[in-house]
Amino acid sequence: MEPILKGRNLVKRYGRVTALDHCDFDLMPGEILGVIGDNGAGKSTLIKAVSGAVIPDEGEVWLNGEPVNFISPIDAREAGIETVYQTLAMSPALSIADNIFMGREIRKAGFMGKWLRQLDRSAMERFARDKLSELGLMTIQNINQAVETLSGGQRQGVAVARAAAFGSKVIILDEPTAALGVKESRKVLELIQDVKSRGIPIILISHNMPHVFEVSDRIHIHRLGKRLTMIDPKDHSMSDAVAYMTGAKEPEQMVAA
């Protein structure tokens, strides 16, 4: 099977630091791929390289078998790759609906939209409310409330809802449960399963081993700027994974990548 998103020989240097060292990457259709690695291993850079947030110095990225050259996250978004960043990338003072549609606003039809470029507020609000309901985020008080008035879990939920609403090919989640409490993390993991059940593959970057092992189909272990190995969470324990990540143990053989 052809990977939906594939990276080969990716290199990214920041001054003297090599964040990505001839790294490979594969995401299969319909799967949840966990990406783990120690701090500074280059996980974030890898994800940014395939989502257009950084431009790799060397190497190539293919989406659906087609070579792609994203020079900005906007390019990747247009190609159907949505990313939920660790920082969530939301404007705190703007409303939930504004944030969900940031950069892809819906304009009114006819004269008001075409010539006065008026936004179709009601359509955007309806869509946003609908998406939040769909993902079970019913406790949001008001679709027009500012994002800064939401709790951490609600913000995360809105960010995931935004990605799920527009991501048609790949959804990337960078540390989605890092800032959340137990209940809220549970909610986000359910959201992830929910999105997967619609057939959209997900890349999950996380430090939280139980979460990664719970939802991932395969796990990409990143070490020193490259892919060390791929493991199947059903065949390996978390302590194995930690040992690989930290270099305490060498993987015996590669699982089919």
Binding site: P73, A89, S91
Partner: peptide
């Protein structure tokens, strides 16, 4: 959005 958080604005397109 640019005034609120330029990085977030950039990442959201």
């Amino acid at each position: 959005a640019v005034g609120d958080d330029p990085e977030a604005a950039e990442l959201s397109g």
